[in-house]
Design a protein around this nucleic acid. Structure first.
Lengths: 209, 209
DNA sequence: GGATGTCCCTAACGCGTTAAGGTGTCAAGC
DNA sequence: GCTTGACACCTTAACGCGTTAGGGACATCC
């Protein structure tokens, strides 16, 4: 029974869920498939390509939920919803966000679709095409990047230890962020900054013409 | 003549400038220092630790220019200036931004100082301490991350080729971004989004109390 | 002179990746 | 019907990589 692209991706995702990204090596994936590591190079041009397809598989289920907002004026809600959706898909797998960070858009097609749709929405919201693509890139970079940070956080105990060792304004700030849902709050706070900023710049762009 | 931490960092930075991050291996650095690779583990606990110290060396010269803004109301200018300063320091070395991305703040002390100073500035600007640290993290993540993307861009020729192959709203948008200083413009555009967003949220926080 | 500690070595592990080659399948040509 | 060749799919062997274990040389201190 020959191996095919889809089987490799599904197997690798199962191993990712079981043991995390660090232990996900080509040799181990190949062994799971009763094959030697270089065989994978027949189906993927590099490990990065395999990871890109995995990221694609992780994000694709989010696409149906990202239809255009009926009303162009509701773009802020659409952005917030999109951000939450991407984040939750990435958090559904260990190191899922790292998978998407640095993914090649020509291979992670789902991510490309999301970028395109975001550009459309922001263009209809009032940005010129160039600025819409700039804002979309900044926004999605933030969403994925912020999720990576969240997912790779050191455990709270070691953070407290470090805070005690180096009492600074930063540790005082972190002391105020002990709520169990702080990650949710912080993520949405960042999203709100970006959405509010875009709103301000759209008005500015409208005023200038 | 024994090797010391500082010499390793300076040598590695020279090699980075000469040949880029991809070719910067411990074995090659060691060879340049007339030493074998494991010797470096006497001075650094991992390659990541060495890279962190390199990032520190790259960013440290920016610190004197990041004094608090005399007037707390001038925080938007301070943020914009800080962003430009960090970006220009990172662009001064090939793959300099990648070096800083994912750096451990306990080792890349300069980066930690920048975070702390940004938290202070945003706190004085009107954010509560927790929100100031959230906004600072989002902002600096954006600055470093956006600079990574800029520094690792595929060459324009291959981008145009891909745009022709897949005519989408994204390629139409990129067609409007051919100015030679588009990277500067796009970076500052992202910074303006974040600054405008923070301004809006500070007013909101003030209104609520 | 023995103990301690600093600084480096050799050997080896699993890693991603490449080069070269082998096996099986299947259509084309005699 | 048999052979030839092409192609799909996988192998073994090897490269340099980051990293670890274990040990050796040399200085410093009691």
């Amino acid at each position: 029974m020959a191996i095919d692209k889809d089987l490799v991706v599904r197997t690798a995702l199962r191993m990712l869920d079981r043991e995390g990204l660090e232990r996900l090596s080509l040799r181990r994936i190949a062994a799971e498939l009763d094959v030697k590591a270089p065989a994978l190079y027949w189906h993927f041009e590099s490990k990065r390509a395999l990871l890109d397809h995995m990221a694609d598989a992780v994000l694709t289920p989010a696409l149906p939920d990202l239809e255009d907002p009926g009303d162009a004026a509701r773009w802020p809600d659409w952005l917030a919803h999109t951000a939450d959706l991407i984040r939750s898909r990435l958090l559904a797998h260990p190191d899922g966000a790292q998978l998407a960070l640095g993914a090649d858009l020509t291979r992670a097609t789902a991510l490309l679709r999301i970028v395109e749709r975001t550009v459309e929405v922001l263009h209809h919201a009032g940005f010129g095409l160039a600025d819409a693509s700039r804002a979309a890139a900044s926004f999605l970079w933030f969403v994925v990047g912020r999720t990576v940070e969240e997912q790779t956080l050191p455990d709270p105990a070691s953070m407290r230890r470090q805070a005690r060792a180096n009492p600074s304004i930063l540790s005082r700030a972190m002391a105020e962020r002990t709520a169990p849902d702080d990650q949710d709050v912080s993520f949405r706070f960042g999203v709100r900054i970006m959405v509010a900023g875009m709103r301000a710049l759209i008005e500015e762009e409208r005023a200038v013409g």
